[in-house]
Nucleic acid binder design. Structure first.
Lengths: 240, 240
DNA sequence: TCACATTTGTCCGTATGTATC
DNA sequence: AGATACATACGGACAAATGTG
């Protein structure tokens, strides 16, 4: 008698659906660099001819790629499917969907942000190069200028945290931070919170950057914790 | 002249496409509980009649929902679109796609895992209730039994980390941990690593659980760090 | 301003494969 | 084994959007 093996070692063999195969082929062409960002794919009719399938099949394949974030589709003349630079927005969307099916509170998001960004900071301080520091400094001075001109600096303040994640040199951190930020933004817009107090945020960002430059890990972590706690606690009145 | 405002304040208004509207309506029905997991949606033809659109339009809407993880579609009689319990697998897929377009190393994954799970442990120790402890104990004893019978315990060992995340009571952590785990699994399968040394893994899990039960945060964190480092370092020879 | 070409969006009808009873 | 119900796939057609001359 054979030794009994646990279930789920082999996935069931799925009979290939044409639209999935088409989508896979285009996807691998993107991964291996044959298709590059900003490139335009052939039109649906041309693709149908190339793959020897119907237009409907091509369209369903394109729907998959669109939802996965690989392409966007423009209508009209000179339109068509265009390769995207990143698929990060798709991650945030998926994360958002997942969390919408759970019960997620603003506090949950804040806690996760604090913990994640604390880790990010440790690695950012370890791995940041001059380009990262410059980008962060640039971000703050741009934001300052905008505040004086009365322009909203919300996108810049979000960008600050993404730049920190980049400085960690770990793509996993970057994706996770961007996703949580997108999640927070969605949460905020859904409950109609406002975007004031950017000056305070800006001042705190400046202090954090200073600590990063000085490689002062303890101070930086203390600052980001307070910073994110403030944003999280003032949930109904203030945010990034 | 108008004051120049930063770009991307307003998104372009998209003229509604039927397939997107159909997909949205089904999605909101899922969110507000009208449609529950395991429910079967009407057939494509019936949906086409209800929404007053063509079958092709319905199919494209279903493609979106399928890719987002909300439904799976079974062919044949008594088949049709079925509501899924969670959309977590969609998150992992999206994350995977995103990271495949970057340059991610096993070390990046290991670092992110360690940092994330350290945070998870802190909150798990704070928030775990008896049910969580029971589930974790159950997991270990099940795995032990399987090891004795020569059955692979890889899925159980992965489950252990998910149970830890659940014990933290923070859905964001759960999603992030599951995603990173899926990412690691994908990475492993892609490079054909093996699944041995489960006994060592099991023993370490047992120690971690003990520390959690004793509410010994420092010890638990030290253990999980060593545990994940070992898994990460022995990348080409050993894993979970 | 207007007409035209291109490309996606949508519809219909039909045929075939596939799983269930 | 046969009937049924469903997804899958094809082809042809027209509408709507969009850029170009």
């Amino acid at each position: 008698m054979e030794k009994k093996i646990s279930d789920h070692i082999f996935e069931p063999v799925e009979t290939k659906q044409a639209y999935k195969e088409v989508s896979e082929k285009i996807k691998t062409a993107i991964f291996n660099g044959t298709l590059k960002p900003e490139d335009r794919l052939p039109s649906e009719i041309a693709l149908a001819k190339q793959f020897q399938v119907s237009r409907q099949t091509v369209r369903e394949a394109l729907r998959l790629l669109e939802m996965s974030g690989f392409i966007t589709i423009r209508r009209g003349s000179a339109g068509g499917p265009i390769i995207e630079k990143t698929v990060l927005h798709a991650v945030s969307n998926a994360l958002l969907n997942a969390l919408q099916m759970q019960n997620v509170t603003l506090n949950d998001i804040t806690v996760a942000r604090i913990e994640t960004e604390k880790s990010v900071l440790r690695y950012a301080i370890k791995n940041a190069d001059q380009a990262d520091i410059n980008a962060l400094s640039e971000n703050i001075s741009t934001a300052k200028r905008k505040v004086e001109q009365g322009i909203t600096v919300f996108p810049d303040n979000v960008e600050f945290h993404i730049l920190l994640a980049r400085a960690s040199k770990n793509p996993v951190f970057i994706v996770v931070v961007e996703s949580i930020l997108a999640l927070g933004a969605e949460y905020i817009s859904r409950f109609g919170l406002n975007f004031e107090a950017s000056k305070k945020t800006l001042a705190e960002h400046e202090k954090i950057l200073k600590a990063v430059i000085e490689r002062n890990t303890e101070e930086a972590i203390r600052l980001i914790k307070d910073h994110l706690l403030r944003i999280g606690h003032r949930n109904k009145s203030t945010t990034e």
